[in-house]
Design a protein around this nucleic acid. Structure first.
Length: 126
DNA sequence: ATCCTGACGCGCC
DNA sequence: AGGCGCGCCAGGA
């Protein structure tokens, strides 16, 4: 065991990041910065992006990880990402997610499990 | 061990 | 409304 560390599990940063992404429930999204913070490095958002880049394995909804502000950000296929998110009940307009703040996943939110009533106002408002 | 890259974030022009 | 640059971190060559 690794007696090092600041972290309980000595899993490497990548490992933790992947775990966090896997923890993102359907219908919700998370920003790279958030994932990094959840992984223990709020400033490693860049590294997170790099990790996602090589994350092509199932079980890791990398499409649920978007940029800050609700921007899809980069992706092998932006259109694909948009479809995937929409399929999860999210509303994506152009390159942005509608009600991003409402779908933004938080560890505490999952604690309550209550999605706090989606403040989603007519999403179809164009 | 060093250098470079890169699916980011945010401020500024 | 866009586009540009700097700062950040971890992983790979």
């Amino acid at each position: 065991m690794p007696a090092r560390a600041p972290t309980a599990t000595d899993a490497t940063f990548t490992q933790r990041v992947l775990a966090v992404v896997r923890s993102i429930p359907i219908g919700q999204v998370c920003t790279y910065g958030d994932v990094a913070a959840l992984a223990g490095h709020p400033r490693a958002h860049r590294a997170v992006g790099n990790i996602m880049r090589g994350c092509r394995e199932p079980g890791v909804p990398c499409h649920r990880v978007i940029g800050a502000g609700g921007v899809l950000g980069g992706y092998s296929a932006p259109s694909l990402k948009r479809e995937l998110l929409r399929a999860e009940g999210l509303v994506v307009v152009g390159q942005r997610v509608r009600g991003f703040s409402s779908v933004r996943w938080s560890p505490e939110r999952s604690r309550s499990s209550r999605s706090r009533r989606s403040t989603v106002r007519s999403t179809s408002k164009k």
